[in-house]
Amino acid sequence: MKTDKADFILLEKLVEIPGVPGREERVADLIRSSLPAPVCDCSLDKLGNLIAHIPGKGKKVMVVAHMDEVGFIVQRILPEGFLKVERLGGSSLRALPGSRLSLWSSKGYIPALAGVLPQHLDTNEPITDFSKVTIDIGSSSCEETRAKGVRPGDVLTWDSPLRSLGDTLICGKALDDRLGCSILIKLAKILQPQELKCDLYLTFTVQEETMLMGGITAANSVSPDVIIGIDGTLSFDTPDLEGKQSDIRLGAGPAIKWMDAIRGKLAAFVPNQKLTHHVCEIAQKNGIPLQDEIAVGMSTAITPMLYASNGAQACAISVPIRYHHTPVETADLRDVENVVLLLKHVLTNDL
């Protein structure tokens, strides 16, 4: 199953649209307009989660991807017109200085950049927090900045459109988790409702990058029997990371999650073993490569959804991504295609 031109154009649009936590409306609008209307019955819950129902017989199955991306929020406007920001989600501080940004004010888009000392003046002092970084939008005073419609609480995203890198790699901002969103859209287009062995709810959640909590209201409303999470995971195939925590690499297939953990080694998510082994068996039967994921320092939207859904069976399938939470997130389209193929086989077999 190859990524065709239409799929790539849609992914370009998904990546380009701003959608930081709590401001995912434009992403939801694009997704809703991209889903096949005759097949999907779409609804938005009060928090902003988009749920696309494809009716079928059998267990209620939620396949989940989150719409939000990491970004920044304006904290202060300085007298000289510059901005100070704080992170929204786990945005990379290391990647911020010298980067191009998009500021979204009440008057719309404003180009911005994160200042960086010229090498001639650099003392090599480490940048340890966001107070050390100043955002420049071309203003010379606080009044000029405010006249552009800018105020504390406005948000910024990386200015990094999708681009190809070699034959199968892509890079840009927000691949975490717009790739997951594109997978669910593709799935809706290729599934034949009569093939389904379940009652399917494709669920696009909000606010994963802050508190992981956005999907709770969706799980409460659907009350699924099974939850399958689709998100990105860390790739360890660059020279600085090889062999450090995992052998996950781009192009070697999706990763099946066995555990993830935040706050040291406390497990945030341990999947249902029977369901996870079932997915592995389907992958093996259909010649779909899988990698094993045990992730430390991260978790996904489905973790709190388990409790909201009264303990649904859950598993997670991940797309390996290099340079997570930076403007140059990088993934392999072959891994994306294999997630779509695997989900198709899983959902058209008994769960």
Score class of each variant (00 low, 15 high):
residue 322 R to T: 12
residue 322 R to H: 12
residue 322 R to D: 10
residue 322 R to F: 11
residue 323 Y to N: 06
residue 323 Y to S: 05
residue 323 Y to F: 15
residue 324 H to C: 09
residue 324 H to Y: 15
residue 324 H to S: 14
residue 325 H to S: 08
residue 325 H to L: 04
residue 326 T to K: 03
residue 326 T to D: 03
residue 328 V to P: 00
residue 328 V to F: 08
residue 328 V to M: 11
residue 330 T to G: 08
residue 331 A to G: 02
residue 332 D to I: 07
residue 332 D to N: 12
residue 332 D to C: 06
residue 333 L to Y: 01
residue 333 L to Q: 11
residue 334 R to N: 14
residue 334 R to W: 04
residue 334 R to A: 14
residue 334 R to S: 14
residue 335 D to T: 10
residue 335 D to Q: 12
residue 335 D to W: 06
residue 336 V to A: 04
residue 336 V to Y: 14
residue 336 V to W: 15
residue 337 E to L: 02
residue 337 E to V: 02
residue 338 N to C: 13
residue 338 N to Q: 15
residue 338 N to K: 15
residue 339 V to P: 00
residue 339 V to E: 01
residue 339 V to F: 04
residue 339 V to Y: 01
residue 339 V to T: 04
residue 340 V to Q: 01
residue 341 L to A: 13
residue 341 L to D: 11
residue 341 L to P: 00
residue 341 L to N: 13
residue 341 L to M: 15
residue 341 L to Y: 10
residue 342 L to F: 09
residue 342 L to S: 07
residue 343 L to T: 08
residue 343 L to S: 05
residue 343 L to V: 09
residue 343 L to W: 02
residue 344 K to V: 05
residue 344 K to C: 04
residue 344 K to Y: 13
residue 344 K to M: 07
residue 345 H to T: 07
residue 345 H to A: 04
residue 346 V to T: 05
residue 347 L to D: 03
residue 347 L to P: 00
residue 348 T to Q: 09
residue 348 T to C: 14
residue 348 T to G: 10
residue 348 T to A: 14
residue 348 T to K: 10
residue 348 T to R: 03
residue 348 T to P: 06
residue 349 N to G: 12
residue 350 D to H: 11
residue 350 D to E: 15
residue 350 D to G: 10
residue 350 D to K: 11
residue 350 D to P: 02
